[in-house]
Simulated scan of single mutants.
Amino acid sequence: MDKRHILMLLAVIVISVAPLIIYSGHGEDDGYFGGADDSAGDAITETGYKPWFQPLWEPPSGEIESLLFALQAAIGALIIGYVFGYYRGRGESSE
């Protein structure tokens, strides 16, 4: 292995392990790793906003909600990948 590869590998390890050491034992209850969605939702409810309508269907659990979100992201990635591949293939075939 080249010296440069070893340095890059060490840098990746340090970048991956440093947050685990710095924030060990802390969680969302302590205010760490809270998402922007939670902060925005709390800020909106503090204003007294009342939603105009309710969702048509509420997923039965958080796992199913995550599954649907991942499925939506995968479908979007497939479409974007297909479009990029199509135009790249079309560009190579015309040369």
Rank of each mutant, 00 (worst) to 15 (best):
L10R: 04
A43S: 15
E46C: 04
V83T: 06
S24W: 12
I22Q: 00
S24Q: 04
Y86C: 11
I21G: 03
Y86I: 01
D37G: 09
E95Q: 08
G35L: 02
E92Y: 03
E58P: 00
G25H: 09
T45R: 15
Y87I: 08
L10S: 05
Y86R: 13
D37P: 02
Q54E: 13
G35I: 02
S94N: 14
M1Q: 11
G35A: 02
T47E: 07
P60K: 10
L71V: 14
V17I: 15
G25N: 07
G31N: 07
A11H: 14
G89N: 11
L78P: 03
V12C: 09
Q72F: 04
I6L: 15
L68A: 07
D2K: 08
R90D: 11
V12I: 13
K50A: 05
S16K: 01
S94A: 13
I44A: 14
V14Y: 09
E46H: 04
I64N: 02
S93W: 06
V17T: 12
F33W: 08
S16H: 03
G41R: 14
E92A: 13
F33K: 00
E63V: 07
H5C: 10
I79K: 01
V17M: 08
V17A: 14
K50S: 07
S24N: 07
A40E: 13
L10Q: 07
S61C: 12
L68H: 05
A36L: 15
I15G: 05
D42F: 05
V83N: 04
Y87P: 00
D2A: 06
V12Y: 11
Y49G: 00
A11Q: 04
G89C: 02
M8S: 10
R88C: 08
Y32W: 15
Y23G: 00
S93Q: 09
F53P: 01
E63R: 07
E28P: 06
L20N: 11
E95R: 03
D42I: 06
Y86P: 02
A36D: 13
S16L: 10
W57P: 00
G27N: 08
A40I: 15
A18S: 08
A77R: 11
I22S: 02
E58S: 03
V83E: 08
G27P: 01
G48D: 07
P19F: 01
P59T: 00
Q54P: 00
F84M: 12
V17F: 09
Y49N: 04
A36V: 12
I79H: 09
G35C: 03
L20W: 07
I22N: 00
I79Q: 06
D38T: 10
I64Y: 15
A36E: 02
T47N: 07
Y87W: 15
L9C: 05
F84I: 14
R4L: 13
P59C: 01
G62S: 05
S66C: 01
M8Y: 11
L78D: 03
Y87C: 03
P60F: 03
Y32K: 11
Y49K: 07
L78Y: 09
L10T: 13
H26K: 15
Y32D: 09
G81P: 01
G89F: 04
I13W: 14
Y49L: 10
Q72D: 06
D37C: 05
A74K: 14
M8F: 10
S16F: 08
G91N: 09
V14C: 08
G34H: 05
L78I: 12
G81Y: 05
S39H: 13
P55Y: 03
I80Q: 08
M1G: 15
L71I: 12
L10K: 09
L56S: 06
K3W: 04
M1K: 12
P19W: 00
L9R: 06
